[in-house]
């Protein structure tokens, strides 16, 4: 290898030293640098120079201090974001609109006719039936303590259900205007009520809790 070829090789290997130091070099290039370091005394001096650059770059970067309140301010900005674009939930009408056009016309009429027949049948059955062993939501909890709750917009239904279940809470009305839900609170006294409401607030799925009917002490 002549002087020029040696010089070119040296230049190329010098450019790879930072990647040898940061551990991202691999394959033939890694092998070549290792071989150079093992065989050429100048290579170790070059490695020491690169290490000094490494330290200087680390120090000069770490001297930059991000603002201490960065996370708090970012969280505020994040709360005002609508959220990632996701597939919007389809209403029943939209789902039907997507479903029916894909059916042959005659089949669509048959499906619509069947749906109407089922609805009429259910109505007649319910009207004629004398059974009364069902309850209307709210009637059995008419005098029970309750609170009004709004849930975080990103709270999953499963998480809401688990959080309410853990506290033995039930939604008995809602959503009311403002996204409020009325939640029955199984408390026998005021202290118990306050405790349950506080624990509800800490669940992570709730945005706000407003006291409703609170039992006396």
């Amino acid at each position: 290898m002549n002087d020029k070829a040696l010089s070119n090789r040296r230049d190329r290997l010098e450019a790879l030293l930072p990647f040898f130091l940061n551990g991202t070099l691999s394959g033939a290039e890694l092998h070549e640098v290792e071989e150079w370091l093992a065989s050429d005394p100048d290579a170790m001096a070059s490695l020491a120079d690169a290490e000094a650059e490494y330290s200087a770059t680390m120090e000069t970067n770490e001297a930059i201090r991000p603002p201490a309140d960065a996370l708090a301010r970012f969280s505020e900005a994040l709360e005002s974001e609508a959220g990632p674009q996701r597939q919007p939930a389809l209403s029943l009408r939209e789902r039907l609109a997507r479903f029916l056009p894909s059916m042959p016309v005659q089949a669509a009429w048959v499906a619509a006719g069947l749906a109407i027949a089922i609805l009429v049948g259910q109505t007649v059955w319910l009207n004629l039936s004398e059974r009364t062993d069902f309850s209307v939501a709210g009637t059995e909890t008419a005098d029970a303590p309750f609170a009004f709750v709004t849930f975080k917009e990103d709270a999953a239904i499963a998480d809401v259900s688990a959080a309410l279940g853990a506290l033995k809470l039930k939604i008995d009305a809602g959503p009311l205007p403002g996204g409020l839900y009325r939640v029955v609170v199984p408390a026998e006294n005021g202290a118990q009520y306050d405790d349950i409401v506080a624990r509800l607030q800490e669940t992570g799925v709730v945005a706000t809790v407003v006291a409703g009917r609170r039992p006396a002490e």
């Binding site: 991000p66 603002p67 990632p84």
Partner: peptide
């Protein structure tokens, strides 16, 4: 600028994570 851009980067992640 570093503060603004760094915040914007993570808001972009929120919008474009998918």
């Amino acid at each position: 600028m570093a503060d603004d851009v760094a915040n914007e980067v993570f808001l972009e992640v929120w919008r474009q994570a998918a």
